Simulated scan of single mutants.
Amino acid sequence: MMILVDQLKYAAAGGIGACISHSGAVPLDVVKTRVQLNPKKYSGTFFENGATLVREEGPGVLLQGLGSTALGYFLHGALKYGGFESLKFTMYKGGYEDLTAFASDHRLFSLIVAAAVAEFVATLALCPLEQTRIKMTKDKDYADGTVGALKRLFREDGVAGVADSLPAIYCKTIPFTMFQLPVYDVVSKSLRESARGLVGVVDVPPIAIQLSASLAAALIASLASQPGDTIITEENGGATAEVASAAGHPGERRERRRRRRRRGLIEVAAELGPSGLFVGWRERLAHVASLVVIQLPAYDNIKQVILHIDFGSKM
């Protein structure tokens, strides 16, 4: 029972940390998405592009998709961090000697696999909310709120249509988490060990270790997942998508979207090319760095607080 309670605490800490970080970074994500949707128009610096958006559409444009982001990443963070910690526990403390020996000898590889499995499950919850976020960022009149956006998404695309986007979303989320969590785990552990060797010489605050490891994780995870991020933006509202869905009845537009998705991710990537796949990478790196340096330390610290709370008398 205590093991289950601890795993639920990890999930709660992950959900809270992810919700806080992603919600706070929504303005950066809006600018990044607009750059990917229309790179010719938004060809300036990050701040110039943001100023153009505010000037043309008002300050509220920077909060488009906030509801979908907050809900989606709370669920996603809970499953991602909770799943990752559960798999780590199974590998290192689950009582499986062969598995523990292998994981100990191949720590980075084992953590990458655990992160990929956890992300595979977490993305299922994120998928529809990520699609509505992009659609609401692209079109301010798409829906009045998260519930309305979800209703419209399922009405126009159907369950099968929403599920069709999973491969594209996985191209973004799985590479991101495969590097984000293991890099943070390994780098922070290494920095803590180095800091212990400096005791009596210099006092290294825990937050300095957390921020340094977070920045390393943000850089590597952002670059690894950039092509997938561009593909999912193209799938849900890029230049090709705008032309395809500009006219026709909802049923016709739905069929056009499905035909686009059936092109295959490799074909989309080939059409975009290396330069196209990395459109908006600077904006995305700024966005990713801002959320990761908040999310990972927040998760670390919230986790420590929650783990010390005893719910035994209330259960």
Score class of each variant (00 low, 15 high):
Val5Tyr: 13
Asp6Leu: 08
Tyr10Met: 08
Cys19Asn: 05
Ile20Thr: 12
Val26Leu: 09
Leu28Asp: 04
Val31Asn: 01
Val31Asp: 00
Lys32Ala: 09
Arg34Ile: 03
Asn38Tyr: 02
Pro39Glu: 05
Gly44Asp: 00
Glu48Thr: 05
Ala51Asp: 14
Thr52Tyr: 15
Thr52Arg: 15
Val54Met: 07
Arg55Val: 03
Glu57Ile: 07
Pro59Ala: 06
Gly60Met: 04
Leu62Cys: 15
Leu62Asn: 14
Gly65Ile: 05
Gly67Leu: 15
Ala70Met: 12
Leu71Asp: 09
Leu71Val: 13
Gly72Cys: 11
Tyr73Pro: 00
Lys80Glu: 06
Tyr81Glu: 12
Gly82Tyr: 05
Gly82Ala: 05
Gly82His: 04
Phe89Tyr: 14
Lys93Gln: 14
Glu97Ala: 08
Asp98Leu: 11
Leu99Asn: 03
Thr100Glu: 10
Thr100Lys: 05
Phe102Asn: 01
Ala103Glu: 00
His106Gln: 06
Leu108His: 11
Ser110Thr: 12
Leu111His: 07
Ala114Gln: 01
Thr123Met: 02
Leu124Phe: 04
Leu124Gln: 06
Ala125Pro: 08
Gln131Val: 02
Lys135Cys: 08
Thr137Arg: 01
Thr146Tyr: 00
Thr146Phe: 03
Lys151Thr: 12
Leu153Trp: 07
Gly161Gln: 06
Val162Gln: 03
Ala163Thr: 01
Asp164Glu: 14
Ser165Ala: 06
Phe176Ala: 05
Thr177Gln: 07
Met178Ala: 12
Gln180Gly: 08
Leu181Asp: 09
Tyr184Cys: 03
Tyr184His: 07
Ser188Arg: 03
Ser190Leu: 12
Leu191Val: 09
Glu193Asp: 15
Ser194Gln: 11
Arg196Lys: 07
Arg196Val: 00
Gly197Met: 13
Gly200Ala: 03
Val202Glu: 14
Val204Arg: 05
Val204Ala: 03
Pro206Tyr: 15
Ile207Phe: 02
Ser212Tyr: 13
Ala213His: 03
Leu215Met: 01
Ala216Tyr: 13
Ala216Pro: 11
Ala217Tyr: 02
Ala218Gln: 10
Leu219Tyr: 09
Ser222Cys: 14
Leu223Thr: 11
Ala224Leu: 02
Ile232Asn: 08
Glu234Thr: 03
Gly237Arg: 02
Gly238Pro: 02
Ala239Ile: 11
Ala241Leu: 10
Ala244Arg: 14
Ala246Phe: 02
His249Asp: 08
Pro250Met: 11
Gly251Ala: 15
Arg253Ala: 12
Arg256Tyr: 11
Arg259Tyr: 10
Arg261Trp: 12
Arg262Tyr: 00
Arg262Asn: 04
Arg263Ile: 02
Gly264Ile: 09
Val268Ile: 13
Val268Ala: 12
Val268Asn: 10
Gly273Gln: 14
Gly273Ile: 11
Gly273Val: 11
Pro274Thr: 09
Pro274Arg: 13
Pro274Leu: 15
Ser275Gln: 13
Ser275Leu: 10
Leu277Gly: 06
Gly280Ile: 03
Gly280Tyr: 02
Trp281Tyr: 01
Ala286Leu: 04
Ile294Tyr: 01
Asn301Glu: 11
Asn301Trp: 09
Ile302Phe: 08
Lys303Gly: 04
Val305Ala: 10
Leu307Ala: 00
His308Ala: 07
His308Met: 07
Asp310His: 04
Phe311Pro: 09
